[in-house]
Design a protein around this nucleic acid. Structure first.
Lengths: 199, 199
DNA sequence: CGATTCTTTGAAAACAGTCAATCTGTGTGG
DNA sequence: CCACACAGATTGACTGTTTTCAAAGAATCG
């Protein structure tokens, strides 16, 4: 049930956990299954849970005033989902998080997480790494949006998130990259032109 | 010397500090003065110090491959400067931080900050708020870059950062907003057209 | 099989970027 | 005090990338 999560925490914290610590973590999480197309978090609600993806996939997106959806995060196995901002401040989130496939999560509430941070150094360390990664990811996206053209951005994102590129349909990826699905399609086709064997 | 900083910490932590805590903070920081155009942090170096702006102003920017500069943060009085990512990981930063005016800072090293976090709840709380704000700020910029046109972005940034708009020249603001200085100029002029009295 | 989801293509339009020239104001040094 | 340099702001004309709209084709699922 929680083996994937426990492995993940051991690996990322770089610590070997005592049986007690393992049990503590195990008892702090619950299993939650979400069907394809269902929401794990709805904009306007507080992000009560933070979730670790055991299997499946999800997208985090906002809806602009104009009604367009904008994907800000994609998640597959071994990713965390939840709006950390809303999770820690307990204010309403602006994000929707939707399952793209039937998904299994290990979830934890804010209160349980607070307790676990104090009790488990490995979990605390894992959270820190996760926050740092979020910050780095935001940096990457900001720079990409500002400095790169649509095509350069496509290449940069593909290089950075190869697993996601194999997993999500192109209109989702397009929104994540910040371009139109039509533009993405054209970029992909024009890329073949650069590979002689495929001509 | 450190009164502005101490006021700031009291206000943001919402705590009244004991004379001992005050003294602890006071002794952890040093005063640093930077002349206009000098760098507080150079890309490639580790962000050894985190600084609180007592007076003056600075810009944090990266240089893209193409050589263009991209401003990611502007700071005036009561802002913090330093690359938090580099500061906490002690890895080289990708940012340059340049003083736009002669500037006075209260600076602290990583080691001193770590010690102070443990010793001063008020300081620890202030840091947490600061990190949360950084995350919110990154969210705002990402959404603005993705959902808004140049003009809408201009308006959104102006509304969010009125003080910065009064303080920095327009080519710096343009880079911060993610548009060209010429475009900014045109937007500003076209705005007058919407105000009958100025016609 | 029908329905939904996803992808591709073409043509036209718009937005913003680029380049180049000019104008303004400010401050510095002779 | 003037002349000069420098940083900043504005304008016009042009260019090109990307978006938008519309339509149709391909793939997948129940």
């Amino acid at each position: 049930m929680f083996d994937v999560l426990l492995n993940y925490i051991e690996e990322y914290s770089g610590a070997v956990m005592s049986p007690m610590e393992v049990e503590l973590i195990r008892s702090s999480f619950r299993v939650k299954k979400i069907r394809k197309k269902q929401l794990f978090l709805r904009a306007g609600e507080v992000s009560r849970y933070c979730g670790f993806v055991v299997n499946g996939s999800l997208r985090t997106y906002t809806v602009c005033e104009k009604g367009a959806e904008h994907v800000v995060k994609l998640a597959i196995e071994n990713y965390w989902v939840g709006d950390l901002g809303s999770f820690s401040s307990q204010k309403p989130s602006v994000y929707n998080i939707e399952a793209r496939e039937n998904t299994e999560l290990n979830i934890i509430t804010r209160a349980e997480a607070d307790r676990l941070i104090l009790a488990s150094p490995a979990f605390a360390q894992t959270l820190r790494i996760m926050e740092e990664r979020n910050a780095i990811s935001a940096q990457f996206m900001l720079k990409a949006y500002n400095c790169l053209s649509a095509e350069e951005r496509y290449i940069a994102f593909e290089e950075r998130y190869p697993l996601l590129f194999r997993r999500f349909p192109s209109h989702i990826l397009a929104s994540f990259i910040g371009i139109q699905k039509e533009t993405l399609s054209r970029i992909r086709n024009s890329q073949c032109e650069n590979i002689p064997e495929l001509k």
